[in-house]
Design a protein around this nucleic acid. Sequence first.
RNA 1: AGAGGAGUGGCAGAGUGGUCGAAUGCGGCGGUCUUGAAAACCGUUGAACCGCGAGGUUCCGGGGGUUCGAAUCCCUCCUCCUCUGCCA
Length: 425
Amino acid sequence: MLQVNFIRDNFNLALEGLRKRNVEHPEEVLHEVLQMDEERKNIQLERDGLQAESNSISKKIGALMKSGQKDEAEAIKQRTGAIKSQVKELEEKYDTTEESLIRLLYTIPNIPHQSVPFGKSAEDNEVVEKIGEIPQLAQGQDHPHWELIKKYDIIDFELGAKITGAGFPVYKGKGARLQRALVNFFLDQAAETGYREVQPPILVNEASGYGTGQLPDKEGQMYECAGENLFLIPTAEVPITNMYRDEILRLEELPIKNVGFTPCFRREAGNWGAHVRGLNRLHQFDKVEIVQVTHPDHSYQALEEMKAYVKQLLDKLELPYRVLKLCGGDMGFTSALTYDLEVFAAGQGRWLEVSSVSNFETYQSNRLKLRFKGEDKKTVLAHTLNGSALALPRIVAAILENNQEDRGVKMPKVLVPYLGYEWID
RNA sequence: AGAGGAGUGGCAGAGUGGUCGAAUGCGGCGGUCUUGAAAACCGUUGAACCGCGAGGUUCCGGGGGUUCGAAUCCCUCCUCCUCUGCCA
C-alpha cells in the first residue's frame, strides 16, 4: 500500500500516477486519505494526552500507597474513572479510524514509474524490443501445441480432468521429463547468476496474502483450503517475499536475491475464453521465480538486470520474443513498472506471455514492514522486485510449435543434457 | 493427536503488581591507548506513532480481561521444545 506521507508530500505526483492508472476520482480518493490521517492524528493527540494524565495519577497513587497515605490514594482513584472510560472510547475511535484508513489504502494501486505509458489495456503496452526470427512453418508442420501433445502423447488434459478438473494436465513420458529439464535448467542458470535457491511452502496464511497484495481483493484468484484459512499460492512471489515480512535488514544484506521453483495455482475465475486452449492457461502450472529485495537507489538497476537475465534464458532456448513495457491500465495493481516478455508461438501465430518482471518499490514493503537500516542508521522501506524465470507451460507450447518438423519436435540444444533425448517423436 | 514445559531487546538471559523500555553478559557502533591490530578501559546501542521542540503515547509471541497501575495475575489463540502416539 502507498505511504500516507508520500501522498502528502507528493500530492501531484500521486495524482498523476492514479490518473495513469485510470483510477476514478483520484483527487477525491487522495484527499480522503489525507483527511482520514489527519483525523487519526487528532484522535491520537487527544488519547495520548489523557493517557499521560492517567499514567501520572497512577504513579502518584503508587507513591501514596508506599508512604502509607491510603486515604489520599483512595481519593485520587475516584478521578481516574472518568479518564479511563474516555481513553477507552478514544482508543476504539482510533482503531476504527486507522482500520478504515488502511482499508482505503488497500484499494489504491501503486503509483506507476514516470516512464510508464498512459493506456487503457494491453493494446497500449509499449513494445520495447523484438528479438529472434519468427519461424515460418511449412504446411503440415504448423500445428498448435494442443495437437502436438496429443500426437506425441506427452501431455494429457482429459486424464487431468478425470483426476481433478479442467486446467490440471498430466504430463507423461517425455512431456514430464521436459518439465523437469526446464525446472533444472532454470534453477541452475539462476544459481550461476547469484540467486540463492529456496523451497518455500506452497500454502500461505492470510497475513502473507495481504503482505504481497493478493488479499484483500483477489480472493477470486487463489484457491483456499477449506477450514484452514490457508491459500494455495498463485506464484512463489508470495511465500518468498513474505520471508522478509516484519524484518529490519542490515544494509550489507542488500541486495537479497532468491530463486524458487514452485507449482502455482490460479482459479482464473471468469478468465476463460476461446483463445485459452491447451497450455495457454492452466489452474496449476510450474514456475521458477526470482525475487529481489534491494536498496531503493538500486531497484531500477536490479529490474533491468532481471529483465536481461530472463532475456538471456529465452535466447538460450532459441525462442523468438518481444519485451513489453506495460501501460498504466494493464499493469498489476501493486507494481510501479512491469516488463512482460512474450514468446512467439508459431503454431498459433500468437505472442504468449512467459514472464512478468516488476518493481514494486515500497508498495509491498510498506505492507510487509520490510525495512533496512540505512546509511544514516534510519530504518527505511526496502524495494521488492520479482520476475518469472520462467513459467513453464507457454515455454513448452512455444518449443513444441516452433520446432516441429517431419520426424518430430527438435529440442533446444541447451536442454538436451537435461532431457536425455533430442527429439520428441 | 495426547501430556508437560517455554515464548522478554541482534543473541544469551534476569525480572513474578508501581521507581521496568526492561539488570547483566555477548555482539554492534564510537572513542582512549597502539606504527597497525588484538587486549584493556570509557561511552553508546530496539521499534512505531504524535509533536517545531521540550516531550508524550504504545510495544516484553498475538488477542481479550482483572486493576488506579500488568513483562509480572486471569482467559484465549499461535509458535517452539520434551515425552507418548501416528505417519512420508
